[in-house]
């Protein structure tokens, strides 16, 4: 549901980068989306299509979402484990004293421009 709001942020940032680089047409935007970022890639690309086509510089531009695996770290036994499977509890020692290392990214990785 918040994907549309996020799309507006992406559009604003991409337009700014394009302007700084004197680019008039962007062909692809690549996103890094963490597994536990709460962003649903399918919704994001749907919202993107609707909103990007309203911008001259982004008409027909595709949005690619690359998934980043969520990994947590246990402060007690120093293990790293997959957050999606085990959640907050460390599978090695059972501790709750854990935090997310990566997997909540919603970042613009790069943009592509077709050169004539």
């Amino acid at each position: 549901m918040h994907e549309l709001g996020i799309v507006f942020y992406i559009i604003r940032d991409v337009k700014q980068v394009a302007q700084e680089n004197s680019v008039t047409k962007v062909s692809k935007v690549v996103m890094n989306i963490g597994e536990v970022s709460t962003v649903v890639p399918e919704y994001l690309t749907d919202c993107w299509r609707w909103a990007a086509d309203k911008e001259e510089i982004l008409k027909g531009c595709t949005l690619e979402c690359q998934s980043i695996k969520a990994v947590s770290y246990c402060e007690d036994c120093h293990a790293e484990y997959e957050t999606i499977i085990h959640g907050k509890k460390c599978p090695c020692c059972g501790s709750d004293n854990t935090y997310l290392l990566r997997g909540n990214e919603v970042e613009i990785k790069e943009i592509e421009i077709k050169e004539e």
Partner: peptide
């Protein structure tokens, strides 16, 4: 085929808001 130029951004969408 067209050549593709890539501009790396690596910026969190929430960065400005944060």
């Amino acid at each position: 085929m067209d050549k593709v130029k890539v501009i790396e951004i690596k910026k969190s969408v929430f960065e400005d808001n944060d």
